[in-house]
Amino acid sequence: MIRAWLVMLLFVSSLSWAAQSSYEFDSDAQRESFNRLTAVLRCPMCQNQNIADSDAMIAHDMRRKVHQLLQDGKTEDEVIAYMKARYGDFVYYEPPVTIGTIWLWLIPLIFIACATIIVVKRRKPQVSADMAEQLAKADEILRQDKS
């Protein structure tokens, strides 16, 4: 029982850690903007974390900057543009559609299209005359077995 509680406590503490922030906001809307932005901006240092999760110094600085820009009345898009101007497209989890990245969307579609064509074409296997004869024979044997 105690063990179960301890395990639960573990989750509680990590949750509160994620939510911990010393920033003050003018409004709830601004706080939501901040939470949204820090979740979609990627830490350039620890590359598989967003800046809300990362404890790298650069992530701290970027969070502070996001907060400051929001306080200055910048919109979410402007904050993202600000970060992109400094750290490149890399910093935003949604890649822009370019010749190079369009394949991320196209390849799965092409794959599905090809697979569909193949499946549809193969649906009716053509049974050769020889094979049909053998199948008929087999069916007959089966029927005889049953009766």
């Binding site: 350039p44 240092m45 110094m57 650069i58 600085d61 970027m62 900057k65 400094r86 750290y87 490149g88």
Partner: peptide
């Protein structure tokens, strides 16, 4: 405040 570093795109 490390602002200029941020402007330069410094990561470390």
């Amino acid at each position: 405040y490390r602002d200029t570093s941020l402007d330069l795109g410094v990561t470390g």
